[in-house]
Every structure is written in structure tokens, then in C-alpha cells.
Design a protein around this nucleic acid. Structure first.
Length: 269
DNA sequence: CCGGCTGGGTTTGCGGTAAG
DNA sequence: CTTACCGCAAACCCAGCCGG
């Protein structure tokens, strides 16, 4: 029972909720067990980490926001997206590149997004915005903020987002009882056109490979995507934010590559 | 005339593959 | 652990034709 209570308390702390008042154990047996535990167990991370700096400003409790602008030689005007089997031309100003970082790959209801990166063209500049939650309870604010960036004319751009990011966000919006802002939007998923063209030519068609072959991007100090869940969970449990910042860095690079690959495939210099 | 084979075109099914 | 899509192959369908 004590272990259960402790687990519950931990979960409530992670969720950003105040610790509930726990009634003292009824029997002396239980009390002795609690005392034994207190004596022989220690918190998972006894020392609060020194490095707890998360980038960006807090725009809501537990929700951090960053906005950067990248210089880019040529913003797209109208894009012929038939290479991605979108028959109607796409206005560059309606593009919304997006990429999520999540707690795992399992896709189902157990997986949540802790970071949403989105990038679009604002005039002559490429704008990258990122949302990161530092508590479970901030998820709804993050989802609402991301929704406010989209409109019915938005054309989503992603890498495998049709199968991964979009369905995952759809379940997160449903669980948060919020309308799904991705519903009905056109979606340009670059994975499939890339595969059609370079499958069998390159060793694989992962985004990291595509950006290297097509854009000459060489990532330095890159955190593998598979380590993203641990980076966030470590921070959530009071650990250092070092790797969480690297996840944000990685996410921003993914967004730049998304735009680069799109322009390359649409034959825009 | 009728049953069954064949060729051309479409549909269905399955394996592989990205995403953290 | 999941989900969607692509590409390829097997299956399927139908028409046309030939042999019995």
C-alpha cells in the first residue's frame, strides 16, 4: 500500500498537482512498514539537478514557448505538389511544417507528445516555433496553442506524420476533449515521395539520410530520436535538462530539413 | 452450343518501413 | 509495443476465342 501511495504521489507531482493529504496508516503494522520504507528507501533523484534550464518563455503553467527565425534564400510562392500526389497547387504561405517529440513509438493511447515544433513562412523569413511541456497537466494548453496556429487553409508538411504525428495528436486532442485542428487539413507527407524516388538508391529513407544526401546537412552532437523520451522523462523527474535542450535542437533541425526537402522536391532552388 | 483456357486489366493482400 | 501508406504480387474478373 505504501508503495502504491508513493507511486501515486509521484504521479501527482509529475502531473503538476499538489500532493494530497494522506491519512496516517490505520494499523501499527502498516505504520511500521511505512517507517521501514522511509528508513531504507530514498527518492529516485535525491539531489535536485543543477541544470534545469529549459529554453523559451513560460506562456502558461508548465508550457514553454520559443520562436526563432532562420534566414532563407527564397521563400516559396506557389508550389506544384503533384510529386506528393496533391493535385491542387499549394501556396507557400499556407505551409505548416510540424514535428512532434513523444514519450515513445508505441503510438497508442499510452504515448503522449511533450513537444510540438512548427515552422512556416512569414514574409521572407522561415519561422520556427516550439512548444514544450514541463508537466503532464500542461498538455491541454500546448494542444490549444498549436491549434491556434492552424486555419482551414493550412497545408501540413511532415515526415511520416500522416501515420505517426497526426494520428497521435488526434488521440491527444480527443483525450483532452478538444476539437482536432488537423482534421480535414491537406497533408503533404514527404516520406512517400522520397521513397518513390530514392528507395533502393540510399541505404534507407529516414529523414536524417535524406537531409544528408539532398541538403548536405551533417548533424553535430545529435541526440538520436530514440533517446527523446528518456530526455523528457528525466527532466520531468527532476533530472538535468541537458538532453531536453538537445531534443529541441534536433526538432528544429528536423523542421528546417522538412522545408529544405520540400523545396528540393518541388524543384524550387 | 458450351465448357474451359488465355490475355489484359483491375482489385486485394501482404510485407516493409518510417515516426519517438 | 502502432499506424498508414507504398509497391509488388497474387488473386480475381471478364471478355474473347478455340476445341470438342
Amino acid at each position: 500500500m505504501s508503495a502504491l501511495l508513493q507511486k501515486l504521489r509521484g504521479l501527482r507531482t509529475e502531473a503538476g498537482l499538489a500532493a494530497p493529504v494522506i491519512a496516517p496508516p490505520a494499523s501499527t503494522d502498516v505504520r511500521r512498514l511505512v517507517q521501514f520504507r522511509a528508513k531504507h528507501t530514498r527518492p529516485a533523484l535525491p539531489i535536485a539537478s543543477l541544470d534545469r534550464e529549459v529554453v523559451g518563455e513560460e506562456i502558461a503553467p508548465g508550457l514553454r514557448f520559443t520562436e526563432t527565425h532562420a534566414d532563407w534564400p527564397s521563400p516559396p510562392g506557389i508550389i506544384d505538389a503533384r510529386f506528393a500526389r496533391l493535385d491542387d497547387p499549394v501556396h507557400g504561405a499556407n505551409l505548416m511544417h510540424f514535428d512532434t517529440e513523444t514519450t515513445g513509438l508505441a503510438g497508442g493511447t499510452g504515448t503522449r507528445a511533450f513537444m510540438i515544433g512548427a515552422a512556416d513562412w512569414v514574409g521572407e523569413r522561415f519561422r520556427i516555433r516550439q512548444l514544450t511541456i514541463t508537466s503532464m497537466s500542461a498538455e491541454a494548453s500546448m494542444l490549444r496553442t498549436f491549434a491556434s496556429w492552424l486555419n482551414p487553409e493550412t497545408v501540413l508538411v511532415s515526415y511520416n506524420g500522416k501515420c505517426y504525428d497526426a494520428p497521435l495528436l488526434a488521440t491527444r486532442y480527443r483525450l483532452a476533449r478538444l476539437p482536432n485542428p488537423l482534421m480535414g487539413l491537406r497533408h503533404l507527407d514527404l516520406l512517400h515521395p522520397v521513397r518513390r524516388r530514392w528507395k533502393g538508391v540510399w541505404e534507407n529513407c529516414r529523414l536524417a539520410t535524406v537531409e544528408r544526401q539532398l541538403l548536405g546537412v551533417v548533424r553535430e552532437d545529435d541526440l538520436p530520436g530514440s533517446e527523446a523520451p528518456a530526455a523528457w522523462l528525466t527532466y520531468l523527474r527532476g533530472g538535468p535538462a541537458t538532453n531536453l535542450r538537445r531534443v529541441a535542437h534536433h526538432n528544429a533541425q528536423d523542421l528546417r530539413s522538412l522545408a529544405g526537402v520540400l523545396l528540393h522536391m518541388a524543384r524550387i532552388p
